[in-house]
Amino acid sequence: MFWINGFLNSFAFGAILFLLAVGFSLIFGLMRVANLAHGALFMLGGYIATSAVGLGFAGAVLVAGAACAVFGGILERTLIRRLAGRELAQVLGTLGLAFIIADQCLLVWSGDPIAQPAPEALRGAVGFGGIVFPAYRLALVALALVAFVGIWALVERTTLGARIRAAVDDREMARAMGIPVSRLFTTVFCLGAGLAGIGGALAAPIMSVYPGLDSEMLPLALLVVILGGIGSLTGALAGSLVIGLVYTFGQMLLPDLAYVILFLPMVVVLAVRPQGFFGRQAA
């Protein structure tokens, strides 16, 4: 029972991590922007969902995702695109942004953790062969898989996705072929920010929302991206799974060493395969 529960909790946490990390990874891989405000967008999504819960749980998640997507789009248009190609400016700028967002959240939602009830229909447990699973956690795993397939189809199977890949291959030539690269990059940023917001909203019932959630989650997203490989969708999924397992079992078995255990696989991967599990060798 201990192990089965541990695995399910790991997968559920991995699902949350995937929603957070995949946007970070896409934005970093496609636009070469390390958006350190990504964790803050996750937390913001969680807070917005707690306030919007009157719309029903699904409604609150959608509102949180949409609000973060719009907010992310505005950030990209006004600030982040001005930092293009300047790494230090990006790190400082997006980190500063993260602080500002966190501070505003503190102002609006106070410093107390806010609990979010799981949706009515998913509060119970589901039994398989005598073993019971909490339904909400199972639903999280299913949702993450749906998101994975959806993003994969968007990037690999639509003209929009092909245009994004073309702009990554040769930005200048993409523009010369009539592709509105600047608008595409805003779209990617909106998508990543929206997924982070949805992730925060979905995480609220199992983690609740509290100040510091952002800076707790961001390093985990970075770990996922480093493990899985920057810009790789499959890598984000595999990395989330690994970090979900390591984090959950680390907390259960060796709570004092949880951070060591977390960063150990990263050190090993960086030493053996610096581009991550699924990353392409730097061109």
């Binding site: 073309a166 040769d170 592709i179």
Partner: peptide
């Protein structure tokens, strides 16, 4: 030439 190297032939035509 500067074709989009990671895209297929079909995709190179579709994006433009």
């Amino acid at each position: 030439r500067r074709i989009f190297r990671s895209l297929s032939v079909e995709e190179n035509l579709a994006v433009a």
